[in-house]
Each structure stands twice: as structure tokens, then as C-alpha cells.
Design a protein around this nucleic acid. Structure first.
Lengths: 219, 219, 219, 219
DNA sequence: TATGAATGAGTGTTCATTCAT
DNA sequence: AATGAATGAACACTCATTCAT
């Protein structure tokens, strides 16, 4: 007999849901499987989350909250703009790798036109700070002469995400299309290096790039 | 009474399937709905495609075949390397926009670990030519001194795709996260311009970039 | 509102299944019909029995278990060997008549090469005692000089069953082929008498038979 | 292109139907499979036999006709009554073994209460001669003093059939129940011998039996 | 005579959800 | 808080049968 710990049960359900939704999508996920994986009763899911969609919304929010929390912990404000940029690219990549559920859940959310986030009031508040940080980094880089002044933070952020997200999201078809193992340790290292390179060449001024290339040829 | 045209029926089913699978995913798609949309009998689906998975495989292959055919029609070989690159980026973007089903189907395929393509013998043959073309463009750009020599064609191709695919795939969550309409005409124009810019800065040598920026500020 | 009694629901399903399977065979039986007859929900069948085949296996095992239990209750050990034999023949015949589902289920099981019993571990244990009893009766009859010593218990048992089973199993074609109502009360009485006669003449020694025929002409 | 031979097509369908119905039962048989096995078009089945039930009726009648024809060829009239009886038992057993489809079809017919034979006008005519022959054999045996005079031909015929039919029909459950391979060459030989023994002891007078046992111990 | 396309009613099975305790 | 029984709508898939040529 498990102790009647409401919060713990809710948490176990949420963790199980994040995994199942990520693996199978919203439509493919099974309430029974989530309940079993959470070692909980099916009715508990309805008690705590109301419905399958409610559970998906909660899972999605939790996924984003964790991502943003990890991002906030990077403390990019104290770094040199270029280092901050590199760190952001690296972090994003690593996070996708370490928490593959994120991509799965976001995909599912978009398949359903993000309707699960429409009613979520505090969702935007979770995301706001991270854009502000990016904005500040760019501003600092521009005023220091390291960054070009034609970089839109939103476009940059999307591009940073894209380089990792798309590679990993489509790793299965990609492996076949490109006839190359995209998930070997070396392939992953190469991809990160390429992403960093692409972002730096996009953002940095020619002079800064020239200096950097004298120092290292990897970037 | 419709004429008894096997090929036509098969085609109508395939078209309906591509749309339904793209919109709802493999799991969410309904055989009944596809049959109704194709104005065909459900059994015809099983007669021609064997199963839901068989139909999905056929839809996916058709989707890729169409994409590669359109790509081949670009005739990039005859263009200047830089123009070829720009055209490739532009084409990819426009294709995703014009045929949104492609992204949906590829996503679904990856959600199922691309198992639908494993048995497809001729799938790789469909994709091979397009990588060869990219390889040649890069080689020409490098030998003409326009392109840097550290660009892996596969990484470049993935990056070109990523800039468009990821933006459009996640347009719904993106619209909320970035608090910005990502699908307005202007937003779409901006995104394409940004993608082109990112790719050129990644690939072109500093000298080439400098010359280009004197001429036009859009790139 | 029916009380929520799992065991009762399971039992009702099993009873309905035995009847439906016996009447229509495994292939011809309809899950819907069984559910309706059991006044239960279709899903309950899958909840308790897993599948149509699982339900069939359960029905078949229940059918055999009931048969063997009734047989064990005969208490043949305490009877004279000849009386035990007669009682066994009579019981078998009456059981087939009273529970016509047995024949139907066994036929279906054999149509499917008894694959439903292959995994059933305890099925042989249900059947073992009854063969042991037959063996003992024969042994007693042989040592008392009443029975011949060339009777294999298995062959005898099959022959006892055959005389009733085949007559009843094929009563419909038989009625047409023999142009005679095989199911009238008199016909049934006659058949039992004939079966008893056939078994006794097969098993008993000539001397024993001679004595018996002086007493009664029916045997 | 096959030559348009109506009779041949019809025959191939009928042969395929007999096999499929025997193996799978009426309900389990598939029109598609029969058509494929007959290397014929599905529509041909409906053209020649009207419906699945019509085809089953035809298959069943053909099965019986073949059985009775083989039986008639035995020419029992010219044999000694005892030899005729032995030959009849042996023939029946061998026929069941050589044409296992017979048992399958008859079982299916009885599962459906022989409704497929109700309309069949000439079915009884096919069966009548064989009963007459049996009647004559018994009469000859009685008047020669070899046979007892209390043997009903119908009961005897059913019993002769039962000993083989039931053994073979239930060979799958039997193998499990009796924990013995019922289908090995030796088992089949033993069964036939047992059946012959049972019938002779049932039918022959004690004196005749005594004489026979001096000569041979197999009967 | 023969063919393959087409149909609609079903068939076993699954699923999210609710009820009763 | 927690459980297991119960529900009904749907789902992928099948089948005997008919149509058009």
C-alpha cells in the first residue's frame, strides 16, 4: 500500500505522461500506459488533470518550464557576448539531446495548432525572460562592435533552435536520406560545431570573425 | 456513376491520404475520412495499399518523390554557385509553404522512427541525386573562390532545410512564445531573407560577402 | 443498475460464450452476441479474457472441467466392473444429450487443431483421473474373469465416446441419410441400448455374455 | 490466357471449395481463398454456384457422391458376410484417412443443421443403395448363422462409422487428453484392428466368434 | 466466359472516460 | 485518496457480394 501522497502521485503521472506523449504523440499516447508507468490508477489522471488534453497541456507546460529554468541558470548576462552566444547554442543542442521529450511534445503541440497553450495564461510569462536575455546579449555585442547590427533576436533565436531541433527531430529520415549515421558521437560533435560556426558567421562582424579564425580554425 | 478507373481511384486515395496524414499524423488520421475525402470505398484502400501503414508509406514516398522532382527541375547546375545556393534556399522555403503536407508527413515518419521507409528499396535512389547536385555546387563555389572550403554538403543541406522547416513546423507554439505573428506575409518574407543571409554568411568567403554587401543590403 | 460483481460478470460471459461457441463454432460466434447474451459490455470480454480466442479457451476448459467433474461424481470404483462399464456408457450418452454444448465446443477445438489447449497447462491434469479410473475398472473385470484381457483402455474409452458423440454430432445429416428421425425419444433409447450392447459384447468374456443373455435380452 | 472451359473451371472451383470448407468450416472459409486456389475469378463462383452457401451445398454433395461411389465399387455382395463386414469397416476407416475433407464437410453441414441438404432432391437417392447393401449383408449373415439376429442395420452402420469418424475427428484433443500420439502409423493400425474387433464381436454369433479366434487372434 | 473494380454491412478490438465503492 | 468495474463510441480491417466491361 502506497502512502497517500497526492503531490507524489501527481508528479509520477506527469513524468510518465511527458515520456509517453513525447514517444507516441498526443493521439498515439495511451492513458492506460501512462497510468501503468506512473504506477497509479487511471482515475487519478482524471482527478488531477481532468482529461487527456488537460494532461497533455500540463505535460507541455512542465516541459517548457523546465527548459526555461535550465536556460535561466546559464547566467549568460555575465559572459562576453560571443561566449554567451556560443553557450546558448551549445546549451540548446545539449538540452535537446538530454531531454528528447521536449522535441516530441512541442511537435505534438504544433500538430494540434498549439490549442493546448491558448488557455494557458502563464505560458507566455515563462517564455518572456529568455527573449529579453537574447535581446540584451545582442545589444551588448552590437555596441561592443562584435556583432552586426542587422540581427533580429527572434529570427536568431529561431535559427539557433532550428539547427539542433530539425537535425534531431528528423534524425530517422535523415539517416536514410543522407545515408549517414547522424547519431554517432562524432556526428553529434560535428553538428554542434557546425551550428556554432553558422551562428557566429551570421552574427559576428567580419572583423571579429577574422580575428577568431586566426586563433582557432574550428569556428 | 464514376468510370471504373483503377489508377484514378488509387490517385484520389493517395492525395486524400497525404492531406489527412499531414494534418492529423499517422495515429490521428482516420481511414474512413480518407476514403470519404477520396470519394472512394474504404476497402479500396486495403485493396490498393494493404493497410493503413502501407498507405502511409505510399503517401510518404509520393511526398518525397514530388519534392525531389520539383528540386530537380530547378536546374541549378547552370547557375552561378551563389545564385544556385540562393535559389535552393528559396525553393526549399517556398516548397514548405506551398506544400505544407510535406512537413507533416516527414514529422509523422520520424515519430515512428522512419520504419515506413526501411523496406522501401527505391527511396534512397530518389534522394541521391539531390545531394550530388549540392556537392557539385559547393565544389564549383570553392574552386571559383566564392565559397569557403570547410562546408560539408550534408550539414549545409540540413541547415538550409532547418531554417525553413523548423520555423514553419513550430509556427503555432512560436507565435505564442515569441508573441509575434509568424505567418503574416511580411513575416514570411523576412524569414526567407534571414535564411538566405544566414546561409550566405556561412558559406561565402569574406571577400565575396564584402562585395555582395556593397551591392545589396538585403543579403 | 447491476451490482458491480466482477466474478458474476465473468461467469455470465463464460456461460454465454459456451452456448454461442457451441452453436456457431469459433468462427461463426459473434462477440457482440455473447456480450448481449451475458448482459455485459463487450469490453468486459476483452478485460477478462483478452481476446476471442482467450474466451474460447476458457469456455473449452470450463466445458471439460464440468464434464470430468460429473464423471468423477459417478463413483464407479464401488460398482461391479460390468455395472461400472454400463454406467460409464450411459453417463457419457446422457451427458452429451444434457449438455449438447460439449460436442460443439470439442468439434470447434479440433477444427482449430486444438491449438487453444496447447498452452493450457492444467488441461491434462483435468483429464488424467478419468483414464486411471477406466484402467482400474478393466483390470478388476479382467481379474474377476468377467472381461477379456485384450482391451486397451484408451481404445475402449474412445469407442464408448464415439458411439454417442458421432450419433449426436451428425444427427442432422444422419436423419436425412438414414431417412429416420434419430432424435425421437424411442430412437434415443434404442441408441443407448445398442451402445451398451456393443460395448459389453466387445469387452466381456463369452461366458459372462452367455450368462447375461439368459437373464436379459436387451443387452 | 486459359482456354474458356466452363466445366474445367467449375471443377477447379469445386475442388478448391471442398478443401477450404473442410479445413476452415463454412464460416471460416474465404471466397477469395477458394477463388485463388482454383485459379479462377471470384465472380465465377457466383456465376456457377450462386452463393457461398450454394457452393457449400455443391461441395457437400460432391463429397458424399464420391464416398458412395467408392463404397459401391467395393462389390460387397459377392463376399462372405463376415468378410464383407470387415471390408466395410476397413474401407470406411481408410476413406476417412485418405479423404479427410469428408469429415470436415460433414461436420460443417451438421453445425448448420444440415440445412444445405434440405433442398437437395437427389441427396437421398445417393445414399439409399448403401443402406440396402448393408441390409442384405446382415440378412445373409443371419440366415447363414454367422450373425446374430438383433442387429439393426442403421445402428450398425452408424457404429461402424463412429469408430473411425470420432477417432479422427477428435484426434487433436484426443492426443492431448489421452497423452498419446493417435496418428502414428502404429496407432492407426491399432485403431483399425480394434474397430474390426468391436464390430465382429457385436455382430457375430458366439459360435462364429469362437471359431474365428482359434484361427486368428487379431480379430 | 471471364475479369477486376467497387460496395456496405459487419468484425474483433481499442480507447478515453465515468461509476460505485 | 484511491481502486477496479463498467461503458459506448470508434477504429482498422474483412467479407460476401455485385457492377461494368
Amino acid at each position: 500500500m502506497r502512502p497517500r501522497d497526492a503531490e507524489a502521485t501527481k508528479d509520477r503521472i506527469l513524468m510518465a505522461a511527458r515520456e509517453e506523449f513525447a514517444l507516441a504523440g498526443l493521439g498515439g499516447a495511451r492513458i492506460d500506459k501512462i497510468a501503468a508507468a506512473a504506477d497509479a490508477n487511471k482515475q487519478m489522471i482524471y482527478h488531477y488533470f481532468g482529461s487527456k488534453d488537460g494532461l497533455f497541456t500540463a505535460a507541455l507546460e512542465a516541459e517548457y518550464a523546465q527548459f526555461r529554468a535550465a536556460e535561466a541558470a546559464l547566467d549568460l548576462e555575465r559572459l562576453d557576448p560571443i561566449e554567451a552566444l556560443i553557450k546558448q547554442v551549445t546549451f540548446t543542442w545539449r538540452y535537446y539531446l538530454d531531454f528528447p521529450g521536449f522535441i516530441g511534445l512541442v511537435n505534438s503541440a504544433n500538430l494540434h495548432k498549439a490549442r493546448h497553450l491558448e488557455t494557458s495564461a502563464d505560458f507566455q510569462q515563462i517564455n518572456r525572460p529568455f527573449l529579453l536575455r537574447m535581446r540584451k546579449i545582442i545589444a551588448r555585442g552590437v555596441s561592443s562592435g562584435q556583432f552586426r547590427d542587422d540581427i533580429d533576436p527572434v529570427q536568431l533565436q529561431i535559427t539557433i533552435a532550428a539547427g539542433g531541433y530539425h537535425y534531431l527531430n528528423n534524425r530517422f529520415t535523415g539517416t536514410i536520406v543522407y545515408e549517414r549515421d547522424l547519431m554517432s558521437a562524432k556526428a553529434l560533435r560535428d553538428r554542434l560545431a557546425f551550428n556554432v560556426k553558422a551562428i557566429l558567421r551570421l552574427v559576428c562582424t567580419p572583423g571579429t570573425l577574422a580575428k577568431m579564425e586566426k586563433v582557432s580554425c574550428t569556428a
